[in-house]
Design a protein around this nucleic acid. Structure first.
Lengths: 217, 217
DNA sequence: CGTCAAGTTGAAGCACCTCAAGCGGGGTGG
DNA sequence: CCACCCCGCTTGAGGTGCTTCAACTTGACG
């Protein structure tokens, strides 16, 4: 179980053209833009805001005492994250691609456009789904379940969609190694259950939804 | 019905700063008693109440499409459970041993003695802890982490405590088989990190806390 | 064209799972 | 009272699948 290096995508970010974070007058706090690998908050930071994703995607993770990164959740457009029980963040949040966020202060008197309880229940529900993913016995089952999940989130159930996250991110989310994830993808691909295309093989087309479900059991 | 009543040492001061008024002041809802294996609610039941545990312990689980039981959480004295996002329960709840509960209606006009948001945040926090447990690579690491967790919850960090749940429960919680859990226990035991005693070897004494931590990494 | 990052593939080793058998305590019935 | 059964736990042997380490491919960028 190798600890993944997080330096990688930050280097990648430096190659991207730098744009000024737009401070459009949207509500009490403006929109902020992040690039792949940018840190949104760190463990230990004061938790005073919650964030809504306009475009892009975010990974929320913790680092175990042994140094392994453990991704708790991927959040994509329309979702909220950043709510903490205590006054400080217990985890890290990073953009996995170009991402526009709207922060909302939780301490201010400004009314929030979302119920904190609903938000929390939704994230709890996500957590339970992930738990049922991780305990699946084989790597193929976990990856197949992950693909189903992403298909629902990204494409509204449509057959084709783009994975925003790297294989390493998926591995740290599913509790597998990068190699096992890659092998699971190729196995599903060679069995004609999915097809992989595009840059870094991150474009997924589900060819046989019913066999994908069978594979995920 | 097996009247196997494991009388748990309760000190329910720890997690909840909320003080619960006596049942009488809350009118219609009283205390209910369950025995080991009794069902508290089922998947599909209308979710109209939340429950506070007075004494005993509860397992909350789901059943995967493939028929595997997946335990999401163990709750013990002082903790709350049963809150659902939708109007129906997505999971099952059963008593692990003799358990006294206080149900509180969430729909009534009666004020609740606990913040639903706090409750939800706490359960989310539990879920994240469990996730970091499950992804640990080896069976010994998972079981060691589980023992630490239970020591904190049951004995307030004390060196000796009683496991309320069976090895099968632990297995379904950690994503392992019963045999692997048993082997991990014996391994920790023969390495003099813990000692197992009592009925069904459920009494655990932590002999070497620091090596337990090392084993859990 | 060289470099680097991300992904894929191969080979060897080990950990977990499966199946099976063996304990041991508690409860039941003769 | 004692034998028996049942259930939970433990232990053993064999097979499978994941991890580890390593090499290779591909695409992007300068």
């Amino acid at each position: 179980m190798t600890a993944t290096s997080y330096v990688a995508e930050q280097d990648f970010k430096r190659l991207n053209p730098v744009t000024v974070p737009s401070t459009s007058s949207f509500g009490p706090v403006g929109t902020r833009t992040f690039f792949a690998g940018d840190v949104i908050y760190r463990r230990g930071d004061k938790a005073m805001k919650i964030y809504r994703i306009d475009t892009g995607a975010v990974r929320v993770y913790r680092v175990s005492p042994s140094g392994c990164r453990n991704i708790l959740a991927f959040h994509s457009a329309g979702e909220w994250f950043g709510l903490e029980a205590s006054g400080h963040h217990e985890d890290y949040a990073e953009a996995i691609c170009e991402t526009r966020l709207r922060p909302f202060s939780t301490s201010g008197s400004m009314p929030l456009p979302v119920s904190l309880l609903d938000l929390c229940l939704r994230n709890l529900s996500f957590a339970y789904v992930r738990q049922s993913l991780i305990v699946r016995p084989t790597a193929v089952a976990r990856v197949a379940g992950f693909i189903e999940e992403e298909a629902c989130k990204s494409a509204g159930g449509g057959p084709e969609f783009e994975l925003l996250m790297s294989r390493a991110d998926i591995a740290d989310y599913l509790g597998l190694t990068v190699e096992s994830v890659a092998r699971a993808f190729t196995r599903l691909s060679s069995r004609r259950i999915i097809r992989l295309d595009g840059r870094l093989h991150r474009r997924v087309r589900i060819l046989d939804p019913s066999r994908l479900i069978v594979a995920s059991l």
